[in-house]
């Protein structure tokens, strides 16, 4: 139905300027694609791959879709290497969830110069250099408000909270934490919520688990651990459950329903939020394919239809000057009422 409306709108506006034309992404053209996650072996990246594979099949792309990533301990150098390899292979587009900060920029720029389109998803290149478009899962600003609201609801308006993040230089994590701090400062109703610390679990279960326990030791009155990473929130919830601390210290943040369902049902993590990584992979693929096949130019204001997900517009990224994004949005907040259905 959405597709139909888009098509009708495009027809109605047929006489108008090109800038407002709705591009229907068409399949069939050959384009080799590479999906490059931060590293292999994490559920959300596998889900993103499922979404990309779905789009790949739907568009009947005769080219190949490769899902390649570095090993976790070699993530930065590995991503640079894989970006360079993809350039050498002459692939049409690389879809990157960046874990290398700006260190990836020279390799990504070299890819662009060689004619490879670089679309980032999940985590962009901070400086925007070397990147065509960032497919943002949700508005970074709205993540802050969602996390602040969950904290408010779990702490019942007042208490101590700490953040358990991934790596200190993950652009997405830092932006989300900053936007949460902004949200907390912006409204009187959050005045009694105190953010006492930000710690990093490197997106590894064991490290995150220990950091969560260290937080409880350090802040005996800690009421909430907010972890905006799927690895951290699960590890923190497990740590609180294992040590029997769930009554005093709750866990919230961004988590996967399948991994969090038991903690939500037993009260350790009463509320958390996330978007669908399959959809993110799907939309990223459509965006990258559109660019790689020349159906999209990547200009600000350009609109396109991405299969089952409907219509999107390329816009300026409010968080990064000069960079462009496609915003997927919105958030789903999970609690004991809806988490079981989503965990299937």
């Amino acid at each position: 139905m959405k597709k139909l409306i888009g098509a009708t709108a495009a027809l109605l506006m047929g006489g108008a300027t090109m800038a407002y034309a709705q591009t229907q992404i068409e399949g069939g053209t050959e384009a080799d694609m590479v999906l490059l996650p931060k590293f292999l072996g994490i559920l959300v990246f596998d889900q993103a791959n499922e979404g990309a594979q779905e789009a790949h099949a739907e568009l009947e792309n005769p080219g190949e879709l490769q899902f390649v990533g570095p090993t976790p301990e070699n993530s930065v150098a590995g991503q640079i290497e894989l970006m360079t390899t993809a350039t050498t292979q002459g692939v049409a587009a690389v879809m990157l969830s960046n874990n290398a900060g700006d260190q990836i920029a020279p390799a990504a720029s070299a890819a662009q110069e060689a004619g490879t389109r670089v679309v980032t998803w999940d985590s962009p290149i901070p400086g925007g250099e070397g990147e065509d478009i960032f497919v943002a899962q949700v508005d970074f600003g709205s993540i802050g408000v969602v996390m602040a609201d969950m904290a408010h609801s779990i702490l019942d308006g007042s208490g101590q909270m700490a953040v358990l993040s991934a790596t200190p230089d993950a652009a997405n994590q830092n932006a989300w934490i900053a936007s949460m701090e902004e949200a907390l400062a912006s409204d009187e109703k959050y005045a009694d919520i105190e953010l006492v610390d930000i710690v990093y679990g490197d997106d590894q279960s064991e490290v995150s688990y220990n950091r969560a326990l260290a937080l409880v030791d350090q802040y005996p009155d800690l009421g909430l651990i907010m972890s905006p990473t799927t690895v951290g929130i699960q590890a923190a919830a497990k740590a609180m459950q294992d040590e029997g601390l769930c009554d005093d210290t709750k866990v919230s943040g961004l988590g996967l329903p399948a991994e969090m369902v038991s903690y939500t049902m037993n009260g350790c993590a009463p509320e958390f939020a996330l978007w669908d990584f399959r959809d993110l992979g799907y939309l990223t693929y459509y965006t990258a394919y559109g660019l790689a096949t020349g159906q999209l130019t990547g200009e600000i204001g350009e609109s396109f239809t991405a299969g089952r997900m409907g219509d999107y517009t390329i816009e300026e990224d409010p968080g990064r000057e000069g960079a462009k994004r496609v915003l997927m949005g919105p958030f789903t907040v999970y609690n004991s009422e809806n988490v079981e259905a989503a965990a299937q």
Binding site: E73, A100, Q103, I104, P106, T167
Partner: peptide
């Protein structure tokens, strides 16, 4: 010089 950026984990595990 090659990556045009540094951070604390440069050359980690090399």
């Amino acid at each position: 010089a090659r990556v045009g950026a540094v951070r604390g984990d440069v050359a980690f595990g090399f």
